[in-house]
Design a binder for these strands. Structure first.
Lengths: 251, 251
DNA sequence: CTCCCTTAAATGTACGTACATTCAAGCTAG
DNA sequence: CTAGCTTGAATGTACGTACATTTAAGGGAG
C-alpha cells in the first residue's frame, strides 16, 4: 500500500487532515466493499492509532462508518430510512400507526413539461418531467392529494411502476438508485378550492395543509412535490427540547 | 479534596461512570461557579487524563460544559435561547427577520380556573391559573391570537408585567427563574370562526394554523398555550436531511 | 498608574504501550 | 459432516509521556 503523507507543519491538526482525506476517499466510493482498520490507516499515513481514532470519531458518530469490536469495519449502508423525514413522512407513518390501510388512486402519470416547476428544479423550461398525481386514501377515505414532478432523465424508469401501493421513494431507490438526502418544505394553512374539496370529498368547513417540498440527491434538485392534506384528519405533532425539534407520530 | 472512587471491576467503563458522576454533580448545581479542570478531575478520581477527556467529550459536545485552551473551564450558561424552539419560535423570528415590528394587545390578563386546561397541566380542576390573552401584531396588522395558561403558584409574579412588547418566556425566566426545557405541540389547519376572523381582521377565505403547546420545566407541566395564526401571513418552513428536521425562518 | 513581559494553568495534539473484549474464520476431533 | 475449540484481527479501554497553544493573572519597568 502506497504510504500517503499529511502535512506535519501546517496549522491544521493531523487528525482533521486525515478526516477530510477519508471523507474525500469515501465520496469517491473507494471503500465500497471494505473500510480499512485503524492499524492499517495508522501505517498507511504514518500516524499513531490515537490520531486515527480521533479522525474516525466523528465519522463513526455520524454513522458514515460502522465499527464494532472484532468485526470488519465497513462503510455504513447508504442512509437507509433516514431520507423520508419531514411532514409528509410524519403524515404517512401516523396513519400507519393508527392502523389504517393506505393506498393510492393514480389520477395522472405521464411525461410533460412545466415551466414553473422546471424553474424550481433548476432546469430549462422545456425539460421533460415525470408527473405523478395521486389521491391518497387512508382507510378508504381520502386523506391527501399528492402531485410530484421529477426530471425525466433521472426518473424515466419509474414510469413502469405501479404506485397504487408502493411509495415513490422506495421505487426511486430501487429503479434508479437515487436516494434523496436533503430538502426543504413549506407548510401552509389553506382553504381548499371547490374542486379540491370534491376530490378529497371533505366538508366545506374543513381547512387543509398545503405542503411544498423540494428534495435533493447529491446536490441536484430531484423532486418537486405539492401535497394537499385534509386538516380534519391530520395534525402535525412535534416535540422540542434543548436537543432540538422532532416531528412525532401521533399517539 | 476527598478522593472519590469508581468501580474498577464493574462492567461499565471508567469513563462512563465518571461521565454519569459528573452529570449528577452538575444537576445538583455543584459546579455553578467553576468547573474543575482535567488534571484536577484525574487526581480526584485517580484516573488518567485520557479517561477524563473521554468522559468529558460528550458533555462538551452537548454544550453542557465549556472548555477552551487556556481558559478556566465553566459550566455552560443555562441553555440561553434554546428553549423557545418550535413552530411559535419560528413564527416570531421569521417576522422579526422580515423587518416587521412586533407588539401585542393584551385582551385579558387575570387569575382564573379552567377545568379543561387544568387537566392538561396535570392539576386539580379548581387550581387557579394565570391567563393571558393577546392579539399579536406584526407591522400593525394582526398576525396571531395567543392564549396562555400557567399555574398561578408558579406564575403569579408575572401579573405585574406588561406584555405589550416583552415575551412571555423572557418575563417568566426573569421574574420566576423558570426556563421551559421541553414540550410538545400540535399544529392543526383550521378555518377561523367568524369571531376569530374579526379579531384577526382577515378575509373570509383565509385559513389558519391552530397550535397547541404543552411545555414543561424540570419535569412539571408549566404552560398550556393555544395560538391561532393567520395562514395568509405565515408558512412553516423546514429543512430536513440525514441529520434531522429543523424549522427555519423564511428567507 | 499604566503598559508590557513573564509565568502559570488549562486544553489541544500526538506519540507510545498494554491488555481486554468481541467476532469470525479456520482447524481439529469426534 | 458437524460441533466445538483455537486463533487472528479488530476495536475498546486505560495507562503513560511530551510538547504546543492559548488565556489570564501577576509583576516589573517606565
Amino acid at each position: 500500500m502506497a504510504p500517503r503523507t499529511l502535512s506535519r507543519s501546517g496549522s491544521e491538526p493531523l487528525w482533521r487532515q486525515l478526516q477530510h482525506e477519508l471523507l474525500t476517499r469515501l465520496d469517491e466510493g473507494e471503500f465500497a466493499d471494505q473500510f480499512p482498520g485503524e492499524l492499517a490507516l495508522a501505517e498507511e499515513y504514518g500516524v499513531s492509532r490515537h490520531t486515527v481514532r480521533q479522525a474516525l470519531r466523528q465519522l463513526r458518530a455520524d454513522g458514515v462508518v460502522v465499527a464494532e469490536r472484532g468485526r470488519q469495519p465497513r462503510v455504513a449502508p447508504p442512509a437507509e430510512i433516514a431520507q423520508p423525514l419531514g411532514a409528509l413522512y410524519s403524515l404517512f407513518t401516523s396513519v400507519e400507526e393508527a392502523g389504517l390501510a393506505q393506498h393510492s388512486i393514480v389520477r395522472t402519470f405521464d411525461l410533460r413539461a412545466d415551466a414553473l416547476v422546471a424553474e424550481r428544479l433548476d432546469l430549462e423550461a422545456s425539460t421533460p418531467l415525470v408527473y405523478l398525481e395521486r389521491l391518497r386514501l387512508a382507510g378508504d377515505e381520502p386523506l391527501a392529494l399528492d402531485r410530484v414532478w421529477l426530471p425525466a432523465d433521472l426518473a424515466k424508469p419509474l414510469l413502469q411502476a405501479d404506485f397504487t401501493h408502493t411509495s415513490l421513494y422506495g421505487e426511486l431507490a430501487r429503479r434508479t438508485g437515487i436516494r434523496l438526502d436533503h430538502g426543504r418544505e413549506e407548510v401552509h394553512a389553506v382553504i381548499p378550492t371547490a374542486a379540491e374539496r370534491a376530490q378529497l370529498s371533505c366538508a366545506h368547513d374543513v381547512a387543509a395543509f398545503a405542503i411544498n417540498r423540494l428534495s435533493h440527491a447529491k446536490g441536484r434538485p430531484v423532486e418537486w412535490r405539492h401535497t394537499l392534506v385534509r386538516g380534519d384528519r391530520y395534525a402535525l405533532t412535534a416535540e422540542f427540547s434543548a436537543a432540538g425539534y422532532r416531528l412525532v407520530s401521533r399517539s
